[in-house]
């Protein structure tokens, strides 16, 4: 919480944000966006939000940048200036942004000071979570315990949202061989899968360790920053690394469309299934303490910890499958034949 470091990182972030939207080349904009995400991740680590920073590092600086580059690869790379009405659109945008900014600045006078321990956000509910989480669930990572146990419904519907996003991408982009009436425009390609030995060798060596690390992140989320989402995204990113260094067809051979959707489904079902199990055993939905009847030799507190581990695994499987599915759909323009 050193304010000099805060201010310097924030000014770099503003410079990156300006550069991202002003640059004329879409590939450069995607890469500067990756740098912007990574600086955000540094800022959040410095503010003390390590779980959020971990998620942003894997999701924003990793998968988001790859999705942008994949989308730019399929379409054109150049940004053409507006043909007419350029000043009007810029003026409208500036006026709207300035008005909104003014409203927000006036509202900002009522905010609590930066990082004061007496702000109302920190006074009412969160002391209960901080002091009671070890006693209730025996999990030291407060963010994981709130995410998976105290606010478990939230996380379940978030997993469902990820699954729905994957389904939406398939619905928009998927083209089968039969109705190929529309012609795919020529995309900007540098090389059609030039097989490079060094990249293939190193990628093949690194991927098992990346996946092992992802499983460690999922399992160790109770004691260190981590959890289901981060581990799932890192697992998906390892497959994307294989797809980039080899051919996408190899990844489609490993994880076909059917198995992707099946795995996504299974992930959400594991989550809801644990909830239903608690319901069948006689407690409320997603009340893990009743699982002590099913798991051997655990008391009510450890049962909550194990229940959390179970749903984290479900979330990781769902997120991994959907990240791979979205990438494959975007990079092959829905046709699943090259990339």
């Amino acid at each position: 919480m050193i304010w000099q470091l805060d201010l310097s990182i924030l000014s770099l972030i503003v410079v990156c944000a300006f550069a991202t939207i002003m640059v004329k080349d879409l590939l450069s904009a995607a890469i500067i966006f990756g740098a912007y995400s990574f600086l955000m991740c540094l800022l959040w680590t410095e503010l003390g939000a390590v779980d959020v920073a971990f998620t942003e590092a894997s999701v924003g600086a990793g998968v988001s940048t790859v999705l942008f580059i994949a989308a730019v690869h399929q379409t054109s790379r150049i940004v053409k200036p507006r043909k007419s009405g350029r000043m009007l659109s810029k003026a409208v945008g500036l006026v709207a942004a300035l008005l909104m900014g003014l409203v927000l600045v006036i509202a900002e006078a009522d905010f609590p000071g930066f990082a004061s321990p007496f702000s109302p956000a920190s006074l009412h509910l969160s002391p209960y979570y901080i002091t009671q989480t070890l006693h209730d669930t025996n999990v030291p990572n407060i963010v994981t315990s709130v995410l998976a146990d105290y606010r478990g419904f939230d996380t379940m519907f978030e997993t469902a949202v990820i699954f729905t996003a994957g389904l939406a991408v398939i619905a928009i982009l998927r083209r089968y061989k039969r109705d190929d009436s529309t012609e795919i425009p020529e995309s900007y390609t540098i090389s059609e899968g030039y097989p490079d030995t060094i990249i293939r060798f190193v990628a093949r060596q690194l991927v098992p360790f990346i996946q092992l690390f992802a499983l460690y992140v999922v399992a160790h989320g109770h004691h260190s920053p981590g959890g289901g989402f981060q581990g799932g995204v890192i697992l998906g990113a390892s497959f994307i690394l294989l797809a980039i260094s080899f051919d996408t067809r190899m990844i489609i051979g490993l994880m076909s469309e059917k198995s992707n959707i099946l795995l996504g489904n299974i992930g959400v079902l594991i989550y809801a299934g644990i909830g239903f199990l608690c319901l069948l055993l006689g407690a409320n939905f997603l009340d893990y303490s009743i699982l002590s009847k099913v798991l051997p030799a655990t008391d009510k507190i450890m049962a909550r910890s194990h229940g959390m581990l179970g749903i984290e695994i479900g979330v990781a499987i769902a997120v991994m499958a959907i990240v791979i599915s979205i990438y494959i759909n975007i990079i092959s323009h829905g046709k699943y034949d090259k990339g």
């Binding site: 939000a49 901080i130 996003a165 959907i322």
Partner: peptide, 21 residues
């Protein structure tokens, strides 16, 4: 304070889904 971290974890994951769509 861990509560905003929890809410923002959900927000980040939803934002990547929205970005894909």
């Amino acid at each position: 304070n861990p509560l905003p971290h929890v809410l923002m974890l959900t927000a980040i994951v939803v934002s990547v889904g929205t970005l894909g769509v």
